[in-house]
């Protein structure tokens, strides 16, 4: 059992704040680190992995700081986002080297076990430089698992994986989480996090925006106000009909388009066509305005 603690931690580069006063505790089980690109997820993982000193605050593993503490790597397995490995080695040599550097008593056996775990036995004699992105991801995973670490940190592990590899990795991480390991992975895709993590930490623009059960976060995300622009046969009549319903927060007429802000996504999706038909108004265009991930996240920050 291992617990990572991030306490009032900030990290800035010159004038740019990458991680801003974040406090979180990552315990056994699977935690998903969710946030748009550039939110500071990689910076936070580098802080947790001891490759970056916090500018302020502390990052500890079971109470011991990880920065400048190479002994921490006995308990940490890191799967970095960057693809670069030692391309001149075969997959097996790469994992064996990792086992040797950890000082394991039988590096060959440990490497074979880790390679089997990530299902790379068939490709282990090929050069790492010739691997596809998904295969590199898996061999890095084997290298990180070789010493059976209590903590596994993965930076965007699903990038470049095909659906089959993705399912395999999900199953693998699940089994590690069930075994009581502390698994933290980052992603900018909500669905990935939702499938895997029971606990989610959301990072937006360096700030810790939300924390908790994924269902909770999912609800926060889908129940936010949704904006639509609508072009119809009679905008004014439609506006009047819509505003009568509780899920409509605001309507405004803007030339030929009607803008609507709805509070309950599912209810509104069902309401709009029904109201239009009852009012005898023909819908020509219905466009969601702010469905980008960034807008979803920035909504979370405000709430």
């Amino acid at each position: 059992m291992a617990t990572l603690d991030v306490t009032a931690c900030s990290r800035w580069y010159g004038n740019v704040v990458a991680v801003n006063d974040v406090t979180m505790r990552i315990g056994p089980g699977i935690t998903g680190l969710l946030g748009p690109n550039g939110a500071g997820k990689s910076t936070l993982i580098n802080l947790l992995a001891g490759f970056l000193p916090p500018s302020a605050g502390a990052v500890t593993l079971d109470g011991v700081p990880v920065w400048k503490n190479q002994e921490a790597y006995r308990a940490i397995g890191l799967v970095p986002e960057r693809e670069a490995t030692f391309d001149y080695l075969t997959g097996r040599e790469f994992v064996v080297a990792s086992a040797e550097l950890h000082g394991l008593p039988d590096p060959g056996a440990a490497a074979a076990r880790a390679i089997t775990t990530v299902a790379m036995a068939d490709a282990q004699e090929r050069k790492v430089g010739e691997y596809s992105k998904g295969m590199k991801q898996r061999i890095k995973m084997a290298s990180a698992l070789v010493h059976d670490p209590a903590v596994l940190l993965l930076d965007e592990p699903f990038n470049g994986m095909d659906p089959r590899q993705r399912l395999h990795l999900i199953a693998l991480l699940r089994s590690m989480g069930d075994a009581g390991r502390t698994v933290l992975f980052s992603s900018h895709i909500l669905e990935e996090v939702e499938q895997l993590a029971n606990h989610v930490e959301v990072l937006v623009a360096g700030r810790h925006a939300a924390s908790g059960d994924y269902r909770e976060i999912r609800r926060l995300m889908t129940d936010r106000p949704h904006q639509y622009t609508i072009v119809s046969g009679d905008n004014r009549a439609l506006a009047a009909a819509l505003v009568a319903d509780r899920s409509t927060a605001a309507v405004s007429l803007d030339g030929d388009t009607l803008r609507v802000e709805a509070t309950e996504f599912l209810h509104f999706a069902e309401l709009l066509p029904r109201v239009a038909r009852d009012a005898g108004v023909r819908l020509y265009e219905v466009t969601p305005v702010d469905e980008s991930l960034e807008s979803v996240f920035s909504y979370l920050v405000q709430s």
């Binding site: 992995a49 002994e71 550097l101 950890h102 890095k140 290298s143």
Partner: peptide, 8 residues
């Protein structure tokens, strides 16, 4: 990083 993430 693959060398540094080791207790060496």
């Amino acid at each position: 990083v693959h060398l540094l993430a080791k207790p060496v």
